[in-house]
Computed example of a mutant assay.
Amino acid sequence: MLAVISAAVAPAIALLSFIYLKDKYETEPLSMVVRVYIFGVLLVFPVMVLQYGFQEELHVSGFVKAFFVSGLLEEFLKWFIVYYSAYMHAEFNEPYDGIVYASALSLGFASLENVFYLSTYGIDEAFWRALLPVSGHALFGVIMGYYLGRGKFASGRRQKYLLLASLLLPALLHGLYNYILIRAEENMYFAIIPFMMFLWWLGLRKVKLANERRVAYLSRHQ
């Protein structure tokens, strides 16, 4: 069991460390990051209950399952917790902070989800789990956090649009990810790997842009 937990959690910790250390100017308090990560771990349980209820009671289609029961539901609950546990906190004081906290929560969620999966299907699945769903959760978190970071320092209608984007864009990408897996079947890896390459390009671009926005933000407030 220890090997399963290690194999399940290690990719998430590695990705979170990478994102945390990409903060080039002022890293966030580690206690806050760990707290948000733990919230992500705990979020797995209500999500499992809700998803089981929707799928068993409503007999949803693959499209609805991908985009609503999984994509929108999971990303909304992540967004809700990040908003109230980090976004409203005084430590959220620079544009890059959104990426740190949203990815921390997403990777906490991915960690426990991965433990359950590997416990059921075996440690041989660890490589593909790290490459696909764990990385996917991290990148959905990066995109959510990028727009949260922008929204934090905007105002009026622009702030509302950015906060809406911080929810809807990761939900849409998460839904597309799930729908590709549902539809691809035998050619799953050939279908999903190009999508993951796009996600990595987009996520790393958002990391770069967030750091650039931080420089601009700091120069205006010195």
Rank of each mutant, 00 (worst) to 15 (best):
G145Q: 03
Y101F: 15
M197K: 09
W200L: 15
G136K: 01
N211A: 13
Y96A: 07
L73Q: 08
I192E: 05
I143A: 01
A191F: 09
S119G: 15
L72S: 07
V115Q: 06
M188C: 04
A191E: 02
G151E: 00
W128G: 11
P170R: 01
F76G: 02
Q159P: 00
H89T: 00
G98K: 06
G108K: 03
E185H: 15
F198D: 09
S103C: 03
G122D: 12
V115R: 09
F92W: 02
N187R: 12
E75M: 07
F116A: 13
L118K: 09
K78A: 11
F140Y: 13
Y146E: 09
L204N: 10
A165Y: 06
L162Y: 05
L173P: 05
F190A: 15
L107T: 01
F76S: 11
Y189W: 12
R158A: 14
S155F: 00
L209H: 11
M88N: 11
Y161L: 14
W200T: 14
L139Y: 13
L169F: 02
L105I: 09
I182Y: 15
L148R: 06
V142Y: 03
S111V: 06
A130F: 02
A130E: 04
G108P: 09
L169T: 02
R183D: 11
S155D: 04
L204A: 10
E94P: 01
A191D: 01
Y146W: 11
A104H: 04
G71L: 03
L72K: 04
L105A: 02
E75Q: 13
L162K: 08
A102C: 04
F195G: 03
L107V: 05
I180D: 05
V207D: 06
F80W: 14
Y189P: 03
F198C: 06
N211H: 12
L204H: 09
F195I: 04
H89V: 00
L131T: 12
I123C: 10
L163E: 04
E113L: 09
R183K: 15
H174N: 05
